[in-house]
Simulated scan of single mutants.
Amino acid sequence: MKQGARGYAGTEAARPRTSGAARVPAQPRAAAGGPLPAAPASSGVRGEHTHGEAGLPGARTRRPVQRTSVRGQILDALRTALVTGELRPGEVYSGPALGERFGVSATPVREAMQQLALEGAVEVVPNRGFRVVERGARELAELAEVRALLEVPVMLRLARTVPAGRWAELRPLAEATVRAAAVGCRATYAEADRAFHRAVLALAGNEQLVQIAEELHRRAQWPQSGPTASRGRADLVADAREHTALLDALIAGDADAVRALVTDHFTGPS
């Protein structure tokens, strides 16, 4: 999609509760600014494990013991904070300080931040922590160009080969982006936006393509720094409506309209 406005959940069999379990509070806050969103209840990433009520915001009663990944929860929460701008470009965040806010040790925070460094979202600042990368309009334009080179030809090929009924099955995903845009929450919209594109590209049957496009898409959703950084609700709504218009053209078999829509979707003004 145009630049603008985050794991899969999973649990395993119950195990006895152990001491020293990490607990993620419902409303963690960033060390250097605004509140961070609570990490989701579970994640498919395996690593450190917590037990019991960890990751259950607002839990007031004992819950069944579950084995979950603290690292995955923190990574999801930090990705959401990047999309919403709660982790601010140029700011430095330390692992211990963020760990204290999340109610966990610094280790899963550092590991999550290392993953974000590999994704290009943050950079390591020796002896201090991690700085959120400041990104300008040029980088976003370059990401849009690369995404267009990957996705546009695939979409045009799929437009010729996928039957209308299959496209119609994606209607709920397109409509989900419209609802998310109407709410105006960039994190919710970012997730719905990626889900729609992921479903479209999955029809090509190339898992490598889907993974690479997903990574580029996620990077394109991080807000840029500067006076033009923020995208408002109107921008999100316009972006989402292109999804439904694209589906209409695909179902109708209108190749010219599909070409125009997918090209503008990546290269049009943000």
Rank of each mutant, 00 (worst) to 15 (best):
G95R: 05
P96G: 07
A97Y: 03
A97W: 01
L98Q: 08
G99F: 11
G99A: 06
R101C: 07
F102N: 00
G103N: 03
V104Y: 13
S105A: 07
A106M: 14
T107V: 15
T107C: 06
T107N: 07
P108M: 13
P108I: 14
R110E: 13
R110I: 11
E111S: 06
M113W: 07
Q115M: 12
L116C: 12
L116H: 11
A117F: 08
L118P: 09
L118Y: 14
E119P: 09
G120D: 13
G120C: 12
E123Q: 14
E123T: 14
P126N: 14
P126H: 14
N127V: 14
R128A: 15
G129I: 07
F130N: 15
F130C: 15
F130G: 12
F130Y: 15
R131D: 10
V132M: 12
V132A: 12
V133A: 15
R135M: 09
R135E: 08
G136Y: 12
G136H: 12
A137I: 14
R138G: 09
R138P: 05
E139H: 11
E139R: 10
L140A: 05
A141G: 06
A141Y: 05
E142I: 13
E145V: 07
V146E: 10
V146Y: 02
R147Y: 03
R147V: 01
A148N: 10
L149V: 04
L150H: 09
L150K: 04
V152S: 10
V152C: 09
P153C: 03
V154L: 07
R160P: 05
R160I: 06
T161K: 10
V162I: 08
A164I: 03
A164H: 14
A164L: 03
W167M: 02
W167T: 08
A168G: 11
A168D: 13
A168N: 10
A168R: 15
L170N: 01
P172Q: 02
A174C: 04
T177L: 00
T177K: 00
A180W: 03
A180T: 02
A180H: 02
V183Y: 13
R186L: 09
A190V: 02
A190P: 00
E191Q: 08
A192W: 02
A192P: 04
R194F: 07
H197D: 06
R198H: 10
R198Q: 07
R198E: 05
V200L: 00
V200P: 00
L201H: 00
A202C: 01
L203T: 06
A204R: 11
G205N: 12
N206Y: 11
N206F: 10
E207L: 06
E207Q: 13
Q208I: 05
Q208S: 08
L209Y: 09
L209W: 09
V210T: 03
Q211P: 01
I212G: 05
E214P: 01
